[in-house]
Design a protein around this nucleic acid. Structure first.
Lengths: 205, 205
DNA sequence: GACTTTATTGTCAACTCGCTACTAATTAGG
DNA sequence: CCTAATTAGTAGCGAGTTGACAATAAAGTC
């Protein structure tokens, strides 16, 4: 008789460290930890509730955002995997460390989670939650570039962003050593204009 | 001691019936069946493998497309739910029937599955798999309209579709009673032009 | 002060998209 | 036949979007 392990609920928690994407991993003696923060799912428990409890216990607060990536097979385990976001500068809890995500994503799980964030970038405030309450437009563009894995045009990015009225300027400016200081903005979405746009076919195949 | 039920792997299978979206439900004496086609997930089994086996056994062939919607709570069960597609005109297997999907989707599960299809409409050939090997452009537009739940402009739809080179005309035409006969096309995606486009902010909030 | 660096704004040409209007081919009904 | 109705497909305009480039602004470095 083989034991039947219950599925796990696993947490892939992202933040920004030194302007780059990082994931929260349990710290082990070896350089590569083997498993994500997780908990066994008991009968009758809703994964959303369990992951929120795990996140609060681990992080000692709620993440700025979270979403279900899906049920992924990882080794011998079935993980119901969630992606979560902590704002830039959050410190790692005891026994854990931020691990930089390489270009193109590392493990299959990380790649799936990053894809999940990327797919929601234009419908949910994923990029904004990775930043603090105020940020420069260059900061924001950098987050979009990291998650989309491509460069964006500075002028077009700003024009489109401001036209959509999802940020508002503060009267604070940030000077970062060299160059002109940048104005700080805050996330402040206006009512959405239901500007449904055209269907795209170019990515099919 | 409470029994610990294993999670189920469940199948939400879509097709077109009389030009409208329909899902495959087990036929019961009462009008509303209570559960999707499903199977218990055993320890060590990969959900993708299990759902493919279930689909082949149920449908007696592979679906034209399938993707994981996610882990959904349905009543007392945890379902790892997949959406699958059969081409228009497929007959329901014994003991099952096609049930029309109302505008805006019916149950939470159906709505989640339809959203899953809609979100992948511009990256995977979901709409084409709902149709047979050849189809008219009006057929295709109708599928897009159903999945997007909004009307599209005929001229714009055709222009964009043809410019993307994802279909090619056949030399066959279909006459459907009234009106001018329509040319039949087949799905034939060309190499994708990596025409990355601008970021959108209008849907945030 | 001259140069470098980063932020921000302006402008223009090309492209996209929704819209209206038109043409084409078929059936239905006199 | 002849006309109306119906569905398929095309042409072109105007508004809006976008990428590229240029210009200006404000800081630091030497």
């Amino acid at each position: 008789m083989v034991a039947r392990p219950a599925p796990q609920v696993a947490l892939v928690c992202f933040s920004l460290v030194d302007g780059g994407l990082a994931v929260l991993m349990p710290a082990t003696a070896s350089s590569r930890a083997t498993s994500w923060p997780h908990v066994q799912l008991q009968a009758g428990e809703a994964p959303d509730v369990v992951i929120d409890a795990l996140a609060r216990k681990l992080l000692e607060r709620s993440p700025a955002w979270r979403g279900q990536v899906g049920a992924l097979v990882e080794g011998a385990h079935l993980n119901i995997t969630y992606a979560a976001i902590l704002p830039a500068g959050s410190t790692a809890p005891r026994g854990h460390a931020w691990q930089t995500v390489p270009r193109g994503g590392g493990s299959a799980t990380v790649r799936a989670a990053v894809s999940h964030l990327r797919d929601r970038l234009d419908r949910e405030p994923v990029a904004f939650r990775l930043l603090g309450p105020t940020f420069t437009l260059s900061d924001l563009q950098s987050v979009y570039e990291i998650l989309l894995e491509r460069r964006l045009h500075k002028a077009s990015f700003r024009r489109t962003l401001l036209a959509a009225h999802v940020v508002e300027p503060t009267d604070a400016w940030r000077s970062e050593g060299r160059g002109r200081p940048a104005q700080l903005f805050r996330f402040s979405p206006r009512r959405r204009r239901g500007v449904q746009r055209a269907v795209r076919f170019e990515l099919l195949g």
